[in-house]
Each structure stands twice: as structure tokens, then as C-alpha cells.
């Protein structure tokens, strides 16, 4: 059973928010604790899946934004 504090650290670890020394400790723990290592692997897979679920806006909308910015530059 993984402790809640460690589970929170795992979340911070996969989102690159864990302090360097805590990262080193956690990475050492992965070598000893298979459940912890698998938990991390699972989170990374979910994270990648969530990345893939992002959507792309239309080129027209992006161009509108860029044109708007340029039009302001021309006015000033």
C-alpha cells in the first residue's frame, strides 16, 4: 500500500513539480518498491493519453489572432 504523501509526491513527480532532492529519493525508492514504480508508470501513461486528447484550433482563428496583433503594431 502506497502512503498518501508518497502518492502526492508521485503526482508532483510526473508533473515536474517535485524538488530535486525528493526526486532523487523517489527514484531510489522505485528500485526497491515495484508497486511504487508501477504506480508511476501508470501515471505517466495516463498523462500521455491526456496529452493526446488535446485539440487543435482552426488555422483561421490562429491567423485572426496574428493579424490582430499586427494591425495594432501598424497603428502605433
Amino acid at each position: 500500500m502506497i502512503k498518501t504523501s508518497t502518492q502526492n509526491e508521485l503526482i508532483q513527480y510526473v508533473y515536474d513539480e517535485l524538488a530535486e532532492d525528493a526526486c532523487t529519493q523517489l527514484e531510489s525508492a522505485f528500485m526497491q518498491d515495484t508497486e511504487l514504480a508501477e504506480g508511476c508508470s501508470e501515471l505517466l501513461r495516463l498523462q500521455q493519453l491526456l496529452d493526446g486528447a488535446s485539440k487543435v484550433p482552426s488555422k483561421r482563428s490562429v491567423q485572426n489572432i496574428l493579424n490582430y496583433s499586427k494591425s495594432l503594431s501598424l497603428q502605433s
Binding site: 488535446s54 487543435v56 484550433p57 490562429v62 496583433s69 503594431s73
Partner: peptide, 20 residues
Amino acid sequence: QGNESAFEQLVNRHKNKVYT
């Protein structure tokens, strides 16, 4: 400072996350 290419780069970098 007025560099529009820099803004284009920012928009392209972040548009998908903003849109999603």
C-alpha cells in the same frame, strides 16, 4: 519590443492547450 514573429511563436506553442 515589436517583434511579431516572437508572438507567432508563442501562439503556435500554446494554442492547443489554450483551445483544449
